[in-house]
Simulated scan of single mutants.
Amino acid sequence: MPFATTRASIAAMGTTLTPDMLGAVRGLFDASQQALARRMPVRAADCAYGPHERHRLDIYAAPDALHAPVLVFVHGGGFLRGDKGSNAADGWPNAAVGRMAAEAGMVGVVINYRLAPDHTWPAGSEDVLAALDWLAANVAQHGGDPNRIVLMGTSAGAVHVAGAIRLRPDLAVRGAVLLSGLYGHTPLDPRDMAYYGPQDRQAERAPGQALTETAIPLLVAVAEFDPPRFQAEFLGLMQARLDRHGTMPRGHVASGHNHYSMAMHLGSEDRRLADEILDFVRETCA
């Protein structure tokens, strides 16, 4: 589908997140993402990185991958839902990010993690750390270099990536990619309480200070049609980094996209954000 048509369709959806919007966005990219799935099937599925049934990850890589950089993707879902996708024809959402990395000569990893309300803060970030520990010991068997890992998350997944940096400041990753996350620069939404707990615990649990201070290279992105809260979070993090370091991290505004299409279009014909991410991985893993 031509980008101008896609952009017009996404713009018409507005910025309020609904199940109907999610379904409509998926429909825009279904054909191209199913084609990617046929080109790049999963290499290792449902690898257990911990004891819980949600402690599972999939690995995407070309058969000849060797010592390749590793991009680990953490899905969104408002802390309450979401899935890493699958090799089924209709299972491409989130899995497409792993396939995008694999098609670029990297190893792509997509993880599941425990969900609220049964598993509250900091369970998601602890699961990201557990997945990283598993990959450090096992990803070489699948063509990846355990010393060249970049973390990436979207929405709640970006929160969990940021939280992993908060929990382990010396995290052994080359970089972190944060798409439309919440970092503590705006008040919590009532539904976020299912993960974070009471409102008065936000300040101590938000990852904003860790992201402001970390020396881990960051790529921070937001969508043109993201809800205003996510745009304010993007600006808040960029300003905090500027105030602390005298320079902003690498940033990207995904024009023509919304909160859902931000990750869902990766691997499609619109290469702008994908190229930004892949260039970031190559540069930080050089």
Rank of each mutant, 00 (worst) to 15 (best):
A11R: 11
A263F: 01
A164Y: 02
V281M: 03
T284N: 13
A136E: 08
L278A: 09
Q34M: 12
V281C: 06
P146Y: 06
S268P: 08
R26C: 03
D189M: 13
M152D: 02
M1N: 07
H160S: 03
S180F: 02
P146T: 05
H52D: 15
A223I: 07
G184Q: 01
I111M: 12
G267P: 04
D243S: 13
G14N: 09
E53N: 11
P249F: 02
H52C: 05
A240G: 10
I59N: 01
A68Q: 02
V72H: 05
D20H: 11
A254W: 02
G144F: 00
P227H: 06
E103R: 12
F79W: 14
E53V: 14
Y113D: 03
M106L: 15
H265W: 10
T16A: 14
P69R: 01
A123W: 00
R168V: 09
D243G: 05
A95T: 08
A206S: 14
Q209F: 11
V128T: 01
Q33V: 08
N87A: 15
N112S: 15
V42F: 03
L115E: 02
V220K: 04
L235T: 09
Q33F: 03
L17P: 04
V74T: 07
H160C: 02
G236R: 00
E283G: 08
R38L: 14
H75N: 05
P19Y: 11
D127T: 06
A44S: 12
R282Q: 09
N87R: 11
L182W: 00
L237C: 07
A89C: 10
F73N: 00
D30T: 14
S32W: 05
R250S: 13
A104K: 03
V161P: 00
A172H: 15
R166E: 11
M100F: 11
L235F: 08
A164P: 04
R114Q: 14
A274T: 13
A48R: 14
N147S: 13
H245A: 09
A31F: 10
E103G: 07
V139Q: 02
H67F: 07
N138K: 10
A8G: 14
Y113V: 01
R148Q: 11
A194P: 01
S9Q: 13
P190Q: 13
L28I: 10
V107Y: 03
H142E: 14
P249K: 07
G256V: 09
I277K: 00
F234G: 03
R250W: 06
F230H: 05
R244H: 15
V139T: 04
G163D: 07
P207L: 08
A254S: 10
M100E: 07
H55Y: 06
T284V: 14
N258A: 10
A158P: 05
A176W: 04
A156M: 09
R191V: 15
T247W: 11
A286L: 12
G50C: 04
T154M: 06
Y196F: 15
N112V: 11
P51W: 07
L211M: 14
N147T: 09
G236I: 01
F230R: 01
H265M: 15
D192K: 00
S32K: 09
G27V: 08
G236V: 00
V25S: 06
M264W: 15
G153R: 00
A223S: 13
Q141I: 03
R205L: 12
M262Q: 06
A176L: 09
P41D: 12
F234D: 01
R272E: 15
D90S: 14
L266D: 04
Y49T: 04
F225E: 00
A130E: 10
A240C: 14
P41S: 10
